[in-house]
Design a protein around this nucleic acid. Structure first.
Lengths: 135, 135
DNA sequence: CTGACTGCAAACGTTTTGCACGGTA
DNA sequence: TACCGTGCAAAACGTTTGCAGTCAG
């Protein structure tokens, strides 16, 4: 589905600025606000920070994007995908999707609590291959 | 081990302010900066925000405290404990320790990646018992 | 054509910093 | 006593908001 369609599906107008943000996120996989600002301004030098903030917040609220809270300080954004975890390199900070079945983990965890589990957020600290070989 | 000893172990002086912060964290389990400010000022009305910030940052850096990054906005602090996950209520935001064996999950995940996994951060979205019965 | 969106500048809240004083070890 | 830690005020920072003009549908 095109980014235009995705936006329309979420009752958001397909402005060039929003499309550009989505393009950056698609290319990066996971991007910080700074990443997004830097990249979008290559194409739209006048694009304002407040527009980026507004759009990210709006798209997160509509569920089109997700915020990633990771052990390190920065906040990352990604286009919403279901049922996956992340590998975060403790050396270089790089982030990689990790396609494991979180439902299985939820099912198992559910046996240890009487609270109803709805979802799981899982990330693993790793040393990525690049950092390992660089060492 | 007393809080005085814990501080000394981390080469930090055992000031009344720091001890008070640790007491609050022990009582609360998980506390935001606001929680900590409110509680500590009951005992030390002149305690300054900057001191709280400095101490929290310092104690996190030394590994005495951990920051909890959760899906919701707020940042929580806890006294560092190994090998546990969290249950976060999506209704009321309450946080509970969840004593599952994260090593088992790490071991299993390790089979699906060639990166070396060092640690896992896991939280579950739940509806807590209180919110369920309130409903 | 109309409401949604944008850019700019100003406002806002949170976190950090500089400095002089005070307290722990 | 020496140095680490504190309180206060100001600075710095990231994020949000108000407004007038513009654009997508």
């Amino acid at each position: 589905m095109s980014h235009v369609d995705i936006l329309k599906l979420h009752t958001l107008k397909a402005t060039p600025q929003r499309l550009c943000v989505l393009d950056v996120l698609k290319n990066y996989g996971h991007a910080t606000l700074e990443d997004i600002e830097k990249q979008t301004k290559l194409k739209f030098p006048t694009l304002s920070l407040s527009t980026i903030y507004r759009n990210l917040n709006e798209m997160v609220k509509k569920g089109l994007l997700s915020e990633l809270k990771l052990a390190n300080k920065k906040e990352y954004y990604e286009i919403t995908k279901e049922n996956h975890a992340h590998l975060v390199c403790t050396k270089c900070g790089s982030i990689e999707d990790f396609l494991i079945d979180t439902n299985e983990i939820i099912k198992k965890a559910q046996m240890s609590t009487s609270n109803t589990i709805l979802d799981a957020t899982i990330s693993f600290d790793v040393i990525c291959k690049e950092c390992l070989s660089r060492k």
